[in-house]
């Protein structure tokens, strides 16, 4: 009983400055890449329509500023996110180390209903560059420790794995939204005649 209503999925891309967040988004949405570095100010978004499981969904991809000096502008856009993409540079170990703080900060600001189940996706960008500082294994281990989040190795420059990564992001975001759809329903007391949706996720938010 898929709704025919247009679905908007909000995706947030986070990571240290210079890891390639804007480049990944540009490669995915506009199929363009530029070698020139230009710091993102605050945050901005691009939209793209994609088909996931025979449904047309609109991805609203929020690209953020990695630099601290632009963070005085707020992060209200974290609220209502359906998926969070963490990006690091496989040639720069520091960008990998700060993943934890990006994740924590996101969870605090976005305050999703179930922080442990919230869909994250990890992207190791710039795999076209040498030398590697973070091995695939190390990244996968980190993912495993964080409730098994999907990991992709990408190159925005060579358009490597970008499409696949975002396809997975869209799918994860869609599952998140369909799970929460009944929570945010306009009529909370409605009686469902079919038992397709599982209401047990509601148990955690019980006031007692």
């Amino acid at each position: 009983m898929a709704t025919r209503k247009k679905v908007l999925l909000k995706v947030i891309i986070l990571g240290d400055s210079g890891v390639g967040k804007t480049s990944l988004m540009n490669q995915y949405v506009n199929k363009k890449f530029s070698n020139q570095y230009k710091a993102t100010i605050g945050a901005d978004f691009l939209t793209k329509e994609v088909i996931v499981d025979d449904r047309i969904v609109t991805l609203q991809i929020w690209d953020t500023a990695g630099q601290e000096r632009f963070q005085s502008l707020g992060v209200a856009f974290y609220r209502g996110a359906d998926c969070c993409v963490l990006v690091f540079d496989v040639t720069a170990p520091n960008t990998f180390k700060s993943l934890d703080s990006w994740r924590d900060e996101f969870l605090i600001q976005a305050s999703p209903r179930e922080p442990t189940d919230f869909p994250f996706v990890l992207l190791g960008n710039k795999v076209d560059l040498e030398p590697r500082a973070i091995s695939t294994k190390r990244a996968q281990q980190w993912c495993l420790s964080k409730n098994n989040i999907p990991y992709f190795e990408t190159s925005a420059k060579e358009a490597l794995n970008v499409e696949q990564a975002f396809q997975s992001i869209a799918r994860n975001a869609l599952t998140q939204q369909s799970q929460s759809v009944d929570l945010y329903n306009e009529f909370p007391d409605q009686i469902k005649l079919t038992n397709t949706t599982n209401r047990n996720s509601n148990g955690d938010s019980c006031a007692c």
Binding site: G42, A43, D44, F45, W62, S72, L73, G74, V75, A76, F77, Y78, R79, I108, Q109, S111
Partner: peptide, 22 residues
């Protein structure tokens, strides 16, 4: 403006949904 709205703040003490601006 969607972008400006997104650049607002949410008070993390009370976690009210209201978007706060400096």
């Amino acid at each position: 403006c969607e972008v400006c709205k997104g650049r607002g703040h949410i008070c993390e003490v009370c976690s009210n949904e209201e978007i706060l601006f400096p």
